[in-house]
Design a protein around this nucleic acid. Sequence first.
DNA 1: GTATACATGATAATGAGTATCGACATCGCA
DNA 2: TGCGATGTCGATACTCATTATCATGTATAC
Lengths: 145, 145
Amino acid sequence: MTGREPEASERRSTRQRTAITAVMTEVVDFRSARQIHAVLRERGHEIGLATVYRNLHDMEQRGEVDVLRAGGGDTAVYRRCERHEHHHHLVCRRCGRAVEVEGPVIESWAARVARDEGFSEVTHAMELFGTCGACTRAERGRPRP
Amino acid sequence: MTGREPEASERRSTRQRTAITAVMTEVVDFRSARQIHAVLRERGHEIGLATVYRNLHDMEQRGEVDVLRAGGGDTAVYRRCERHEHHHHLVCRRCGRAVEVEGPVIESWAARVARDEGFSEVTHAMELFGTCGACTRAERGRPRP
DNA sequence: GTATACATGATAATGAGTATCGACATCGCA
DNA sequence: TGCGATGTCGATACTCATTATCATGTATAC
């Protein structure tokens, strides 16, 4: 986002790292580190939770995965995104399905506001949450959860 | 944000609640529950941390305070805002000073994106982070923190 | 003033994420 | 291919924010 991170020091390729990358490539929704850890264990990979956290952080650093923290508040959720450039997400509250969206309007608005207020080095965090079409339809039959 | 919350059931006015409200009215920056708790203790109020959390949640529910969770990730920070209507914040990373900003552009963009993607009941979370004018100037003399 | 439901507060519990550190695996080099 | 330096792993203990519990205190209605 800020475009820093001068060195992207290569990491050794390990069995664990490969497994994590594989899972992240398959899974389409945002998942917490613990969920990813669980999936790995289910598949028979003996991976420690700490390793999952470590690697996810790592992948976040080099822009390989996107992280969402705004959701509920605490738990961070990860997902491998199609586009590596700056973008935002529209996430379904029900099923977690996420759509990547561009927001050039946001970018320019943010820059303008920052300038007007005398702020520099401005970054922004923005995510959209809603109910996707499928979940909206599914919801219509049911009385209420 | 969503405009729900049908009943805003009145709460009893207690010594503690009054003290918390007083502090929130005075403090201008975003503060964590623990910081607020500390201020209260400094002023001689014997208030439990749980009570501070409880009341802040409460005030959040009824829109009396705004909460930011996007900052670092974990800790939520609270502040009483001038405007009660929907708005966003431009927060200084250094000193924590926050400016309230309106983003009509954001609102319409979010609505449009949601419609295009077939999502309903869409809300959004967006905050801007930067370095305020004062901190930028202060930074210029120093080598680097 | 009294009853009672609600609020408080001390503390235990929860849960995400991090630090630690000995064991292990990878990579470069002979 | 074998070896050693060094990066990585994993079990676990830990930190820290937040929440649940429950006995006690206290606004409020009558």
